[in-house]
């Protein structure tokens, strides 16, 4: 089983960190993982994206050409990557900033008011965690417990409060799409 995902947004939205958390959690679960960022002048333009693979088998190219899922944090990211998602894949997009739906009919789109949910979670900068929570709920790429362990490792120097506040935002996203699924079912 291979989970491949592209996370894309503008600088400061924490897309690279959210991607690393998936890879870290996958590693904790004993899976093969790879994470690769966009780099160079592309970053200077204020956009950032990364690709993550979590798999039971060794990972070939770490570059995610046809992701099973896309987390689009802003409109340019949705426009750039929507066409690359595999048939039947997930497109989770930040509806706080993106005022349109998904054009493709062969993927499943999930709008998420990530900014508002982050504010509700008491963590206005936690949109990346909201989006990540939604992705984990919908894909099952890694468990929530291993994401917590990954957060504890990455934020070891910042203390347990930082872990908690991020987990809270993550669960906001998780529950938000859980509701959507139930409604659709």
């Amino acid at each position: 089983m291979l989970h491949s995902v592209i996370l894309a947004g503008f600088g400061g939205q924490g897309v690279l960190l959210a991607g690393q958390l998936i890879a870290y959690a996958g590693m904790i679960e004993g899976k093969h993982v790879a994470w690769i960022p966009s780099y160079g002048p592309e970053m200077r333009g204020g956009t950032a994206h990364c690709g993550v693979s979590v798999s039971d088998d060794p990972i070939g190219s770490p570059v995610v050409e046809e992701p099973g899922a896309l987390l689009a944090f802003n409109l340019p990211s949705l426009e750039k990557f929507e066409g690359k998602v595999t048939q039947g894949g997930l497109v989770i997009y930040n509806a706080s900033l993106i005022k349109r739906g998904v054009y493709r009919k062969d993927v499943v789109g999930y709008p998420l008011l990530a900014n508002e949910l982050a504010v509700d979670a008491g963590n206005p900068r936690g949109t990346n965690m909201v989006m990540l929570g939604a992705y984990l709920m919908l894909s099952g790429a890694t468990g929530i417990g291993s994401i917590r362990q990954a957060l504890e490792k990455i934020f070891a120097s910042k203390g347990p409060e930082v872990v908690e506040i991020n987990m809270k935002a993550l669960l906001m996203g998780w529950r938000a799409v859980q509701g959507v699924v139930q409604k659709g079912a």
Binding site: M27, V33, A34, W35, I36, Y39, S61, P62
Partner: peptide, 10 residues
């Protein structure tokens, strides 16, 4: 190569 240098793996 650039991929190898930029990628994260365990």
């Amino acid at each position: 190569d650039g991929t190898m240098g930029q990628m994260m793996e365990p």
